[in-house]
Amino acid sequence: MKWRRWNYLLHRDIGFLCIGLTLLYAISGVAVNHISQWNPSYRVERIETNIGPVLGDPADAGTVRMILARLNEQGKLESSYRPDRKSLQLFVEGRSIMVDLASGHVVHDRAIPRPGLREMNFLHLNHPKKAWTWFADLYAVALAFLAISGLFMIRRKTLRRGLVLTGVGIVLPLFFLIVYL
């Protein structure tokens, strides 16, 4: 088989293999690009309410039970913390419940994972480490192969257009480097 044929076959099949990961990196890429404007993996929901003044000792389990009962909280209490003498922070199944003891004002924080995006960002930002690092490296090599093998697929008929567009693709990042670096 001629090398051109091999080039075409490998470009095609590696291209198929890369579709899933390319979409994952593209979607997650846009999401994490704007990390200064939003949390790409979680949505934080904040609910404020008032349960009335809490008079008991906040270190006492009975007082904590009473607070949870007033909140109609069914989740399991994991831990608690005293930020200062006036407040008590409770953690219930990953949620934070901050209670102002004197006023009874409660701030209930819940981090809700963004379905799909959290998982994509998890992989994109290489949080798993371990075998995923090598897999992602392999994907990068595959992308480089697609780019280079693509160059050899330019036919005489489209040579001029191919070279111009390839040149533009190389010049664009250089332009931003000159402007911002």
Binding site: S41, S79, F91, V92, G94, R95, S96, A111, L125
Partner: peptide, 14 residues
């Protein structure tokens, strides 16, 4: 930033 990313689920854990 990026080297270590603590998940929100860490709240309330030791």
């Amino acid at each position: 930033d990026g080297e270590i990313v603590f998940p929100m689920e860490a709240r309330g854990k030791k």
